[in-house]
Amino acid sequence: MDGVGVAIAETLIKIVRGYLFAGLVFSVPFVIFGIQRVDPSVKGWNVLFRVLILPGLSVFWPLFAVRLVRGKRHPVERTAHRLAAQSASHP
């Protein structure tokens, strides 16, 4: 393949690696210190649990960064019945 193709492939790989690495840089301190503020169900010092969620955090880290900054917890699911109940109580 030509040099352009190689350059495109190299750039894309660098972008993906950079995103995941940035995720890891955010996630390691987050999983130790910040996680309980976003999800109070995280209790105690279960190291294996925190290691297990690290790969996923490295992918979805912007979501948790936003929640941490805004001081929000995880949302409740949106289903047809929950939405209907909500609109009935707050017309």
Binding site: V42, P55, G56, F60, V76, E77, R78, T79
Partner: peptide, 20 residues
């Protein structure tokens, strides 16, 4: 498969919500 395996823990069901 990576994203699925990485989010297979119940923590992800709670934090992403089940429909998502």
């Amino acid at each position: 498969f990576f994203v699925m395996a990485a989010t297979s823990h119940d923590f992800w069901l709670v934090n992403l919500t089940a429909p998502i």
